[in-house]
Amino acid sequence: MVKEVEKAGFPVVILCNLIPVARSVGANKIVPTISIPYPLGDPATSKEEQYKLRRHRVEVALDALTEDIKEQTVFKVKI
C-alpha cells in the first residue's frame, strides 16, 4: 500500500514492527514500532511511558518526512 502512496508522489513513512517485510515490499522510509498488536505503546507500561514512546516514534517519523534520502532507510529511534 505504502508503495502506491509514494508512487502517487506523497512523501510517506511506514511505521511497523517487521522491518524485513517493509524492506521487501519496497518501502523507502521506515520507522520501527515495538510490536505487531501494539505498535506505539506497550500496555505493560504506564500510560505516561506509552505516550512518551509514541510521541518519540511519531516525531522521528515526522522528521523522516523531511529527509532527502537517496536509498531505503530505517530511521533510528531512542525509545
Partner: peptide
C-alpha cells in the same frame, strides 16, 4: 487488493490536498 485500495485512497488524498502521509502497519 492492497494496490487497488491504496489507489482509491490516493485519489481521495489528492482531492483533500494532503501533503504527506504516515502509515502504521501491524
Amino acid at each position: 487488493e492492497a494496490r487497488r485500495m491504496a489507489q482509491e485512497i490516493v485519489v481521495h488524498m489528492k482531492e483533500a490536498q494532503v501533503d504527506a502521509v504516515l502509515m502504521v502497519s501491524t
